[in-house]
């Protein structure tokens, strides 16, 4: 294993660390929305770094790794968006620390307000 291998191992370790933080977040966050935030997002930087590190250890795989990263990038936000949207639709309660829920506000006040942005 040359320098590239050691660098790859370090990058993979960093990625694993981010996934560990996400696991801690999954346990500590108060409600489903914050858990989605902490949990599913680790796949962005965490798995990106893990895959990139593996790619550096085996440079022949780099292109396929790039393809894997793109697939994670495309599928990950869609799944967490769908989970969050479904949770809000069936009215999973937000935690008591939530300060604002403008989606519920605009759903109850039947779209009478014409807001001008900017």
């Amino acid at each position: 294993m040359g320098y590239l291998g050691i660098l790859g191992a370090l990058i993979t370790l960093t990625g694993a660390l981010f996934i560990l933080f996400a696991a801690v977040g999954l346990l500590r966050m108060p409600d489903i929305y914050n858990r989605i935030q902490a949990g599913t997002k680790a796949t962005t930087l965490g798995s990106m770094l893990t895959l990139l590190g593996i790619g550096l250890i085996h440079p022949a795989w780099l292109l396929k790794i790039a393809l894997l990263i793109i697939f994670v990038f495309v599928s990950n936000p869609v799944s967490s968006h769908v989970l969050g949207r479904a949770a809000h639709h069936i009215r999973v309660p937000l935690s008591s620390r939530t300060v604002k829920d403008q989606l519920a506000e605009s759903e109850s006040s039947s779209t009478n307000e014409q807001e001008v942005s900017e």
Binding site: L45, F73, H81, L103
Partner: peptide, 22 residues
Amino acid sequence: NSITLTPGTFTIDVIGDTFYIH
């Protein structure tokens, strides 16, 4: 998807021109 991929924010719903972001 960019908003969702950036940790700390995620798009819950899009109604018309409005994004609802957690």
